[in-house]
């Protein structure tokens, strides 16, 4: 599951409340049936939290840090050592375990923080912006790690990067200004917003016949000219009637009219469109929930 929203939407605040770092002004946080306000010790044991900005104790080595996290999370002394080793291996930190955390690169720090969250076998992992500040390679690595962990844990993460969301999550909560705007799967969200059935075409059209093409193809709802390029090709956006795929018709009909198609592209709605549309509509409109 992912919390998703623009900067300042309240993602981190929500996470801080879930983890018991701050208390909500109203309402209750219930973790696995346990009330955070009444049984904080038990509720907190179910959670592994990786805060934003990966705070680490810089005077400790990686192994010391993970061990310390295991100690404060009350991992049984007998299995502590073994668990710590296991997690260090799982997060790929074996070769740096003796280094001080302050000497590590950002990507490794992120892993150490993740290791700290994983300690103590929490049922729920809460990751606040886990890929911020990483290079593309590290982002892929962290994402793979998250996907891997997602098989065995419930993961709640926050993000404002859209491609990330559709890649690793199966449920999205979009929030803006502290309000939930939408709760759904990424696919459903895309589908809900995917009202448009448009195609972008780039054509060479010396006789300027595109303007009248709508009369020939009745399925076209609207044609709008976008721009003319330097090589005399023109770009149009063609909107079809609902449920009609225009691509085949366009291909044959335009050829008959002596218009050459250089490029044809179906406009795909992404989560990006969904996001922008939902944010624009404001917090008033609730787009379904499951």
């Amino acid at each position: 599951m992912v919390y998703f929203g623009p900067n300042g939407a309240g993602k981190s605040t929500t996470m801080n409340m879930i983890t018991g770092y701050i208390e909500p002004t109203s309402g209750t946080v219930i973790i696995d049936g346990m009330n955070m306000a009444k049984k904080p010790q038990k509720a907190k044991k179910q959670i592994g939290y990786m805060p934003e900005g990966v705070p680490l104790y810089t005077d400790l080595t990686v192994k010391e840090f993970v061990t310390y996290m295991a100690e404060i999370k009350k991992v049984d002394r007998k299995i502590r050592k073994q668990k710590v080793d296991e997690i260090i291996r799982q997060t790929g930190l074996k070769e740096v375990e003796r280094k001080l955390t302050k000497t590590l690169s950002r990507g490794y720090k992120q892993r150490v923080s993740m290791a700290g969250a994983l300690v103590g076998d929490p049922k729920i992992l809460i990751l606040d912006e886990p890929t911020v500040g990483l290079d593309p390679k590290q982002i892929t690595e962290i994402r793979n790690l998250i996907k891997e962990l997602g098989k065995t844990h419930t993961i709640i993460l926050s993000s404002h990067i859209l491609s990330e969301v559709s890649q690793i999550c199966n449920k999205v909560i979009i929030i803006n200004q502290g309000k939930i705007i939408a709760v759904d799967t990424p696919e459903n969200l895309e589908r809900k917003v995917a009202k448009n059935n448009s195609i972008y075409v780039t054509v060479e059209d010396p006789e300027d016949k595109m303007k009248t093409i709508q009369e020939k193809i009745t399925d076209i709802e609207k044609i709008s000219f976008i721009q003319e390029d330097e090589d005399k090709t023109k770009q149009y956006r063609i909107e079809g009637k609902e449920g009609v795929d225009l691509r085949k018709t366009l291909f044959t009909e335009l050829a008959k009219e002596n218009i050459t198609i250089f490029e044809m592209k179906k406009a795909d709605t992404t989560l990006e469109d969904a996001f922008i549309q939902l944010i624009d509509e404001g917090g008033n409109n609730h787009v379904g929930s499951n």
Partner: peptide, 14 residues
């Protein structure tokens, strides 16, 4: 300042 407070306060330690 470093935010490690979050780690401590979200742990089961009182």
């Amino acid at each position: 300042k470093t935010g490690t407070e979050q780690l401590l306060l979200t742990s089961p330690l009182s």
